[in-house]
Amino acid sequence: MIPVGFDYVAPQSLEDAIGALAEGGEEAKLLAGGHSLLPLMKLRLAAPTLLVDLRRVPGLTGIERQNGVFRIRAMTTHHQVATGGLGLASEAAATIADQQVRNRGTIGGSLAHGDTAADMPAVLLAYEGDVAARGPSGERTIPAAELFEDYLTTALAPDEVLTEVRLPSMDGYGFGYQKFNRRREDWAMVGACALVKKAPDGSCEDVRIGLTHMGSIPLRASAAEDALRGRGLDSDAIAGAAEQAAEGTGPPGDLNATPEYKRHLARVLCRRALEEAAGRA
């Protein structure tokens, strides 16, 4: 509970932040809400030598809608996302931990941290959104499908700052979010989010399903999506599709759940999320 010693800077601009990161080398880390990083440091599972706090960097908070895309600046807190009227993203953010954590934790921090047990990564996947990252050599866009690489490992380079998260507005989609946790304000044992668009004839025009904590990275339930796309949205069809939710997943077993139980949960939650989404579509 007592971290290894470290230096701290709070630069006033994005350029300075990137500079500080580059100078600090491998062991320099950005600090956003601190609600993933600091617990790891206190347990001495992480021991960065320099923390570069993003809090003073201007222009890193807020949500804007532009051309059918929500641009969420990286330091926007879970609370702001939860109350931002973003549909699925808001609903998911509202389930993160408790109010204190939601007041501190940020969407950028959550995605950069890339925990497969966290809520926002699978949501980003389902939206097929992307993130903007700025490093010493400029800005680039990383699509959701390329962001998450392995346990707590993302495509972000150590000297890159995730500056913005972009989510298509998904107008016309219904959404559902099903988070299964041991305690009400806890991490997901398994989570499933769904976005469903109905065709005029009531069938499923498009569907996206994201899975939380079903592998080393957040996943799409592609088999289930394929099974539903173009079909009817009645409960039998949804149930049939949801049966395939665990295809291709490799959930880690842990204290609370065997891989088998997690696969079962994924199927149940997927069905429920789809029902919810279809009902709202």
């Binding site: 993933s36 617990p39 790891l40 347990l43 599972l45 992480a46 925990d115 497969t116 047990a117 966290a118 346990y151 707590l152 946790n181 041991r182 806890d186 991490w187 997901a188 044992m189 904590h213 080393s216 880690p252 842990d254 204290l255 609370n256 759940a257």
Partner: peptide, 12 residues
């Protein structure tokens, strides 16, 4: 996975 004991965050 990653040493996590439960429905918690993943440990590095």
């Amino acid at each position: 996975g990653g040493g996590a004991a439960g429905s918690g965050p993943t440990a590095p």
